[in-house]
Design a protein around this nucleic acid. Sequence first.
DNA 1: GTCATTGCAAAGGATTTGCAGTTCC
DNA 2: GGAACTGCAAATCCTTTGCAATGAC
Lengths: 159, 159
Amino acid sequence: MTMNLSLTDIQQTFRDCGLKSTPQRTAIYQALVHSTAHPTAENLFTQVSPAYPMLSLNTVYYTLGVLRKAGLVQEVNVGHDRARFDANLSPHHHVICLGCHAILDVMDPRLNRLSSPLGIPKDFEITSHQVAFRGYCGTCRRSRSSMTTSPSGKRPAIQ
Amino acid sequence: MTMNLSLTDIQQTFRDCGLKSTPQRTAIYQALVHSTAHPTAENLFTQVSPAYPMLSLNTVYYTLGVLRKAGLVQEVNVGHDRARFDANLSPHHHVICLGCHAILDVMDPRLNRLSSPLGIPKDFEITSHQVAFRGYCGTCRRSRSSMTTSPSGKRPAIQ
DNA sequence: GTCATTGCAAAGGATTTGCAGTTCC
DNA sequence: GGAACTGCAAATCCTTTGCAATGAC
């Protein structure tokens, strides 16, 4: 989520990017801008559907593709599961909960200034970087600790 | 790629993890250990197939799943395309070429010591982090610059 | 008027599941 | 001997493609 964009703001954004402004497109983008949950295409479909019962999931995919190419949206990839989307355009990083797969934005500016990595070919041009922190959110941590605590304190070797 | 593991090393590793040692499993793991290319399941299938003509792609998936659960292999996710695998167990990071989708390991130890990120809930427990650098390798950079150079130097607004 | 966008249906591609036969321990 | 592993086939799930109708500019 970047900020509170009004409908007219969004339509102006579309115009600036040379995109046609349709009700579906506006609704999908607005839902994404106002979300911090990094929703999937289907999440957005479910959220926008009530207002546009004729909306098809295909349109959500198509729209997200258009917005991505226009640079208004980024795809966040965690695991090789379904794609998740983010309308936060400022450089930022992510924290991913391994339990519930929640994704949180991390705006820590120190992470934006990592020096170029050692040991890569000199002619490799780095254009961006992103840090992914993994761990367990409070809720998942609590439910895990009550589950996996064993007398020996050992974890099973597998899984 | 971690190091040069012999067949007996690999069989010992499997034994240590409580995994049965089969020819297919050994071949798949060996191929992965000796690769720096972060191959896909299908890459590994193609590579191992000649020696084991009866090998099924399913077995490759199954094996990679077993190795992942045993902690011998990690899945590297770049984009939401096919999963790629890495037998490098030491903490490390990745550089991804946006042109050819090559993935390089980055062993820069400074990246292993990032401080905990600001602005996340205090009860979120971070267990690991990984930095993904993106850019263009020398080859892709050269073919791109000869292609996209335009008099105005402007990039197209879309795509 | 033209071309992007939409919706529906079908296709595509990566991965998983079911199951019988085999192999490792 | 028993459980894990393998191979084949079919199923599943996310995403893309084809195409005719609609709508934005």
